[in-house]
Design a protein around this nucleic acid. Structure first.
Length: 624
DNA sequence: GTAGGGTTAG
């Protein structure tokens, strides 16, 4: 029955190639003992050693079943809840291998399911690999579980290799197997491939699509930012007689909420309720999250009341969303209150909850309190992660305390946390803001040496840092280097450079760059236009500033409050009071207001003794 | 009868 995978000849598409010829790289992350495995027997030995070395206490004897019935009972429970420790699961596996007769494929598969529940994906793959070497028969469910593990380990390619093995052995993949692979592709940002695969399967009647596979594609559409297509697919599945589930609705509600379309999300909530599908804590958490982003506090209160009425308790996620929203809005006391409340209600705050609170203190510049949150976390046995440190590092950088930030970077590294490009970017930005140019330069070089994968934000920080320090010329040469390295600059990058060039009085170069933006097929945004207007006003080139205003209107990029204020201040500065009057009227007509600096300039002018007729006319207008 | 896939937070 069992075909030994070892004998498979087509190396690149066989499980053999995956598990026995040294492609075990991805297994190393989870199970540290499995580093140089070359044969399955060694895996088992190492697993045993691993469990002996790792457990400080002996595994609970209750977890080591002696009979099949005992095993069955244990696995029925563990496949749903997971084992307490990885070692407990491995000891059970070891025991199972020595039972006579061997437990059935169902039991082994339940053990794999338990490992998945515990998120020990690489351990599950090793166990599967050992099952194969011990000639334990596996079936399509076992394969689907292992494919799922590969996908979680970001090795969807191995997932497909297993699909090939499934075909080779004459098994028939089902809709679950395919859903797993489709999800794997999506999680690797390969939505197009996922969609192609899905439509192929439909066209060739390979699967009877169910709500889960539709939801997976809908989720993919949402993740690429195409919520409207997701919505259309929801309608399509209904038309095809496949009833959308709670998860389908929740996926779209979440995406609409993220797109700030919370009212549409509420509409969908009403629709699902009408159809008898009751929302759950995830649905409500998504909606609350959307409302938080819009500071619609009354709606949040209403949603919490609705949850209470429907006997749906907020969970860790819901509370973390609330803590984050309040903290970001500066309401750290309310954030603290929610943490107390969740503890009272038996929901334990975790690293995400505390990091959100810490971020709130950082935003208020209360670094001592932010640091105290770090201590609280640690005292509660919650370990700060890379993101926690990055938030704190950002807090110190914004306060110009770059040395402390660098110290924290070292501390996190010592704790075995790997800083991300975001962490490095934060410090690079901090050094530039503190005008420590030489160190910024060194730090950047260090990032390159360390092999940090730079992103577009790094480029923005670098160019912004140079421009802000009067080095627009150098920024331009760095920019040209980046372009020749194949980096595709976005409008944000151009805005930074145009601003920098104006700041250094390089008006022609700024004009040229805006011209390049258009040549590249990029569209100048509000910020580009506002920068140009500000630049021309500064140089006394009011005519050109006006031209930009017209161009904005032509390009359907309607001037906003900042545009008008900038232009009005430009008029004031250049004593074009009649022009200013026209613009002020126009601005009010659009419902915009004069901002702080415009108002104070206007106030100064009204106080002045200047006798310009246009200024006198303007005075009359504002002080009749 | 007993095992697998789809949704949420910094």
């Amino acid at each position: 029955m069992m075909v030994r995978l070892r004998s498979a000849s087509s190396a690149c598409f066989s499980s053999d190639a995956i598990f026995h010829k040294g492609s075990l790289g991805f297994l190393r992350h989870g199970t540290t003992a499995l580093t140089t495995t070359s044969s399955s027997c060694r895996v088992i030995t190492l697993l045993r050693l691993h469990s002996l070395c790792q457990s400080s206490t002996c595994p609970n004897p209750n977890h080591i079943p002696n009979h099949h019935t005992e095993l069955q009972q244990l696995l029925n429970e563990k496949c749903k809840l997971g084992f307490d420790k990885l070692d407990d699961a491995l000891v059970v596996f070891d025991k199972m291998l020595r039972m006579k007769p061997l437990p059935t494929v169902i039991h082994f598969t339940q053990l794999l399911a338990a490992l998945v529940k515990m998120k020990h994906y690489s351990a599950a793959v090793s166990v599967f690999s050992d099952m194969c070497s011990f000639s334990i028969s596996v079936n399509i469910i076992t394969y689907s579980i292992v494919i799922n593990c590969c996908c979680h380990l970001k090795r969807v390619d191995y997932g497909f290799a297993l699909l090939a093995a499934i075909f080779k052995r004459g098994f028939v993949p089902d809709v679950v197997t395919y859903t797993t692979l489709v999800r794997g592709l999506i999680s690797q940002d390969k939505f197009l491939e996922a969609e192609l695969m899905f439509s192929y399967l439909l066209q060739h009647n390979q699967i009877q699509p169910d709500a889960a596979i539709f939801t997976t594609i809908i989720d993919g559409l949402c993740k690429i930012g195409n919520t409207s297509r997701a919505m259309r697919l929801l309608r399509y599945m209904e038309k095809k007689g496949c009833m959308p589930s709670l998860v389908t609705y929740t996926t779209i509600i979440d995406s609409l909420s993220k797109d700030r379309l919370v009212d549409d999300a509420l509409g969908l909530l009403a629709e699902m309720s009408d159809k008898g599908i009751q929302p759950d804590v995830v649905t409500y958490s998504s909606l609350i999250h959307g409302m938080c982003n819009l500071n619609r506090w009354d709606d949040i209160t209403q949603l919490l009341k609705d949850m209470d009425r429907h006997k749906i308790s907020p969970n860790k996620h819901t509370y973390s969303i609330l803590v984050d929203a309040h903290a970001r809005d500066g309401k750290v006391k309310d954030a603290e209150h929610f943490i107390e409340l969740m503890i009272q209600r038996g929901q334990h705050p975790d690293v995400v909850t505390y990091s959100a609170l810490m971020d709130g203190y950082c935003l208020r510049g209360e670094l001592d309190k932010a640091f105290a949150v770090l201590s609280t976390m640690i005292s509660k046995g919650i370990f700060p992660d890379t993101q926690t440190y990055t938030i704190l590092i950002n807090g110190y950088c914004k306060k110009m305390k770059v040395d402390t930030a660098i110290h924290l970077l070292e501390e996190m590294t010592l704790k075995g946390l790997t800083p991300t490009v975001e962490t490095y970017n934060t410090i690079l930005d901090g050094l530039f803001r503190a005008r420590r140019l030489n160190e910024a330069h060194k730090f950047y070089k260090n990032m390159l040496n360390q092999g940090v994968k730079l992103n577009i934000v790094t480029c923005r920080i670098l160019l912004h840092g140079l421009c802000c320090n009067g080095l627009a010329g150098e920024a331009m040469s760095v920019f040209h280097d980046m372009e020749s390295c194949g980096l595709l600059p976005d409008i944000h990058i151009y805005n930074i450079l145009i601003h920098g060039l104006f700041k250094d009085g390089k008006v022609d170069e700024a004009r040229n760059l805006l011209h390049n933006v258009r040549l590249k097929g990029l569209h100048p945004d509000f910020i580009s236009y506002n920068i140009m207007i500000q630049g021309f006003c500064q140089e006394g080139l009011l005519e050109e500033a006006y031209k930009i205003l017209l161009e904005m209107e032509e390009n359907n990029c309607l001037p906003n409050e900042v545009t008008y204020n900038t232009l009005i201040r430009g008029c004031f500065k250049n004593k074009k009071y009649d022009g200013a009057c026209v613009l002020v009227d126009e601005m009010f007509a659009h419902g915009f207001k004069a901002d702080g600096s415009t108002t104070s300039m206007l106030f100064d002018l009204l106080q002045s003794k200047e006798q310009d007729p246009a200024l006198l006319a303007m005075k009359k207008k504002f002080m009749p």
